[in-house]
Nucleic acid binder design. Structure first.
Length: 856
RNA sequence: GCCCGAGUGGCGGAAUGGUAGACGCAGGGGAUUCAAAAUCCCCCGCUGGCAACAGCGUGUCGGUUCGAGUCCGACCUCGGGCACCA
């Protein structure tokens, strides 16, 4: 009786062997090239999910593959451990955020370990460790000194009932998620990192991120949002004192003669000034402020405006007055918070003009068949040539880009404003009115103002005894924690009670992994050896904020002496993986509300899906991202217990390309397990075969060719991040071995190479069959196999023959056949002769080595 | 609303502008078995045809090309992000 494939026995055995040999510990070694693989570290929610399994499996494939290629690999793991869920849990279930968080970390580590990842666990840390956030505070002070930090006013979502600041996700339809109260926008003084000073640099450097996905680079560029335009000031009429001018910014100064109104943000100083003696304006502004702060909320809300008594003079014609409106879609954060509206060439302005009966003045029309604007604004790409009917600079026919350039020059000549470059990117507000975050190490002194905490007093630790049973900032209402003395004058003072945005924590953890226990944020020698991250892997949902903040931090850390110059772009290569999805199973309750069911509770019968063997039928909805609320989740711990880690890893890599979503199916998991069992069986059979099991020389040679083709294919696919195709290559090789008549020794040779090729994906099984077939040492330490080019050569090629672009036949010719010889052979082909019917071909296209096309 | 991406058999997917459907799943047929499980072998885009073969076919509509899943234009549907979720 041959040994069965038992993952539950194999996997712990090899994990213990790796631990005993300390295979994955990373130490700097100047003699070897290094390779730093990093997956985005997890938030410790308490359970790992299939998305983690997929993410870390991909990283592990790269880490193990690079190690086999001779690199000194750094592959660390940590925890993004600050954030709101810990506070929410404490509020809902009692307990302390720290206990909840560290408990979750212990649970998740225990779930992660059985996956057999090649992680150097000695470098593990959590961002809520005082050792980590204390160093973060030290960097904050360095950044403060370097002028990278500023303090200014910012808008927050204010819940007037709970008297607390809400995150955008806590605002649902303009109401607080717990209190249900209408949320207000409120101004608070906050700390900011001056990321907008780096807008041009961050934009320029995107070009050098050659191994990042184009889509991420494009999203970042759009987010930074560089634009050129004209900034000028209208003279106002009827405005309160101090508002004699109204500054506006426009990217389309060429449409200045199409202006029909001016509009300002409800948060604009002029709008605020007008509130004082105009109750209608005060009411309108208040209504506008009863909206979340998110750009999405602003942009999707119904466009509304209110006229004011103020007008402005058109800069080209003192007799031409434009009304000033307050409009809810003008962002105070962008440009000057005021615009001029040109309805003919901006759809939003046009909708506004039609709604409130404002004039629509055409500035340009299509170069051919031009017509005045109706209900659709005419907004062609700026590269398109149009005919100006109301221009004031440049020729009548020009592109939008040329017209903007000409308009800026003309305006500057007339003394109307000046051309400016503007960015959409705003400074990074980091103040959070919450407990479970890194305290901002600043002291507020009545005499000295905001004073940095002394270095020797770091870390400024969070107090343990806090009351989270009521909403609001526990640090702010803590009886004693904020009481301190001024680091400058020694007088009584009060600590800053805001904590930092958790994005700060995740903006430099990759650097900390290079020296995780240091009593400085980083150690230059270690950072110099290990940086940059050679391959970063994570979800595309982080394409903008996390990655942009990290790029900023790398620059700030360089300025403050915590990273070497070469780490200015910390991630050499980025890969964004897709989500794990699953079908959704739903029944209806007596009020027809959906009731969701876990996949493990659904049984498949001949009459479809049911709850239990003969329970009620279940509706099956299309696959969607696994989520607790829809219960379309499978628990990795269960899957590993049932099939083993190798099966979970193999399935996560097969089927779908890594950048796309993958659907978890029970059938797919079964299939993955069956395949691994088959590989195990083939190895066991081969190991059990005697020396008498001789094959033919031809069969041995054919198997060698198939094996070396697989080496080449798998290597290429792993290098190209095409793991699903690498898996397909491995299926093909497995089939070749299974069907081969080669001698046992030749099959063993192939199976050992199969073990090596599978080792990055299914490391435990790979070790098992490697050992079974006499491999030396651990596969985890073996060198990657090299494909023999001589075995990849073929003598002949098959050329498909197309007739008028459709494949009709094919010929086989020696590899280096000359074109004219191929043409002659093609004309002899029966299908070609039939199609030609004696006539000569109109055209004969030969693409050497690829295809032939006969045009008749 | 704005920015970004994705749509190919029953399903997941493969295909430097060059044989559409590799590989896998599901399904069908067969071998083995007292029977089953497991395993092994064969078939498998749609329509017509005994077959040879022909026609159609990569979300929709149009274009470029000897040749388009791939390039260009317009649209439809789904997904990600939108600065306090992480």
């Amino acid at each position: 009786m041959m040994a069965q494939y038992r993952a539950s026995e194999i996997e712990p055995k090899w994990q213990a062997a790796w631990d005993a040999a300390d295979v994955f510990r990373a130490e700097p070694d100047p003699a070897r090239p290094k390779y730093y693989v990093l997956e985005m570290f997890p938030y410790p929610s308490g359970r790992i999910h299939m998305g983690h399994v997929r993410n870390y499996t991909m990283g592990d494939v790269i880490a193990r593959y690079k190690a086999a290629r001779g690199f000194n690999v750094l592959h660390p793991m940590g925890w993004d451990a600050f954030g709101m869920p810990a506070e929410n849990a404490a509020m809902e279930r009692g307990g302390h955020p720290a206990d909840w968080t560290y408990g979750n970390i212990a649970d998740m580590r225990a779930q992660l370990r059985p996956m057999g990842l090649s992680i150097d666990w000695s470098r593990e840390f959590a961002t809520c460790d005082p050792e980590y956030y204390g160093q973060q505070q030290a960097m904050f002070l360095d950044m403060l000194e370097a002028g990278l930090v500023t303090r200014k006013s910012a808008t927050v979502n204010w819940d007037p009932v709970d008297r607390t600041v809400l995150a955008n996700e806590q605002v649902i339809d303009g109401k607080g998620w717990r209190s249900g109260a209408e949320v207000e926008r409120r101004e608070l003084t906050q700390w900011f990192f001056r990321i907008s000073d780096f807008a041009e640099e961050l934009l320029d450097a995107i070009d050098r991120l050659e191994r990042w996905p184009d889509k991420v680079r494009l999203m970042q560029a759009n987010w930074i949002g560089k634009s050129r335009g004209l900034q000028f000031a209208f003279d106002t009429l009827g405005a309160p004192a101090g508002h004699e001018k109204l500054a506006v910014y426009t990217t389309r100064p060429d449409t200045l003669l199409g202006a029909s109104f001016a509009a300002i943000s409800p948060d604009h100083p002029l709008a605020r000034a007008l509130e004082a003696d105009d109750p209608a304006i005060a009411a309108f502004n208040a209504e506008c402020r009863r909206m979340g702060t998110s750009e999405e909320a602003l942009e999707t809300a119904e466009k509304k405006g209110l006229p004011t008594r103020v007008t402005v003079r058109h800069p080209f014609d003192p007799d031409w007055e434009l009304p000033v409106w307050i409009a809810n879609f003008i962002l105070m954060d962008y440009g000057t918070g005021a615009i001029f509206g040109c309805p003919a060439h901006d759809q939003r302005d046009l909708d506004f003009a039609r709604k409130y009966g404002l004039p629509v003045i055409d500035v340009f029309e299509a170069a051919e068949d031009g017509a005045p604007v109706g209900d659709i604004a005419f907004v062609p790409p700026k590269t398109e040539t149009v005919r100006y009917v109301n221009g004031f600079a440049g020729p009548d026919r020009q592109t939008g880009d040329d017209a903007v350039t000409a308009a800026i020059a003309e305006c500057e000549a007339r003394g109307v404003g000046s051309g400016v470059t503007n960015y959409r990117l705003r400074d990074w507000g980091i103040s959070r009115q919450r407990y479970w975050g890194c305290p901002i190490p600043v002291v507020h002194c009545p005499d000295c103002g905001a004073v940095p905490e002394k270095r020797e007093n770091l870390p400024v630790e969070l107090p343990r005894n806090v009351d989270l049973s009521v909403p609001g900032n526990p640090l702010d209402r803590h009886p004693t924690w904020a009481d301190t003395t001024c680091p400058r004058c020694g007088g009584p003072a009060r600590r800053e009670t805001d904590t930092m945005d958790t994005f700060v924590d995740s903006s430099w953890y990759f650097a900390r992994f290079t020296a995780p226990r240091a009593d400085t944020p980083t150690v230059m020698a270690d950072a110099d050896y290990w940086m940059n991250v050679d391959q970063y892997i994570g979800g595309v949902e982080h394409a903008i904020l996390h990655l942009l903040y990290s790029r900023f931090f790398a620059r700030a850390m360089q300025i403050t002496g915590h990273l070497p110059a070469k780490a200015i772009e910390p991630f050499d290569a980025l890969f964004t993986q897709g989500m794990v999805t699953h079908e959704i199973y739903v029944t209806r309750d007596d009020k027809d509300r959906p009731v969701y069911h876990l996949p493990e509770h659904v049984h498949w019968t001949e009459s479809g899906a049911r709850l239990g063997a003969d329970g009620p039928p279940v509706d099956v909805m299309p696959p969607a991202k696994m989520s607790k609320s829809k219960k379309n989740v499978v628990d990795p711990e269960r899957i590993i217990a049932e099939y083993g880690a190798d099966t979970a890893r193999w399935f996560m890599l097969s089927d779908s390309p890594p950048e796309r979503d993958v659907e978890w199916t029970a059938a797919g998991a079964d299939a993955a397990f069956r395949h691994l069992a088959r590989v195990h069986r083939l190895a066991a059979e081969c190991a059990g075969a005697g020396h008498g099991d001789a094959g033919t020389a031809a069969a041995d040679a054919a198997l060698d060719r198939a094996t070396h083709a697989a080496i080449a294919g798998v290597t290429r696919c792993i290098e190209g991040f095409a793991f699903n195709k690498a898996v397909a290559e491995l299926y093909t090789l497995t089939n070749a071995i299974a069907r081969s008549d080669a001698a046992a020794s030749a099959r063993a040779r192939s199976l050992r190479i199969l073990a090596q090729l599978m080792a990055p994906m299914t490391p435990h099984l790979a070790e098992e069959i490697w050992a079974m077939l006499g491999g030396q040492g651990l596969v985890a330490r073996a060198d990657w196999p090299q494909a023999d080019p001589a075995l990849l050569e073929t003598d002949t090629v098959t050329l498909p023959i197309q007739i008028n672009g459709k494949r009709r036949s094919q010929i086989e010719v020696p590899k280096d056949t000359a074109t004219d010889a191929i043409e002659a052979a093609v004309l002899q082909d029966a299908a070609v002769q039939r199609a030609l019917a004696g006539a000569a071909p109109r055209k004969l296209i030969v693409v050497p080595g690829r295809i032939v096309n006969v045009v008749v």
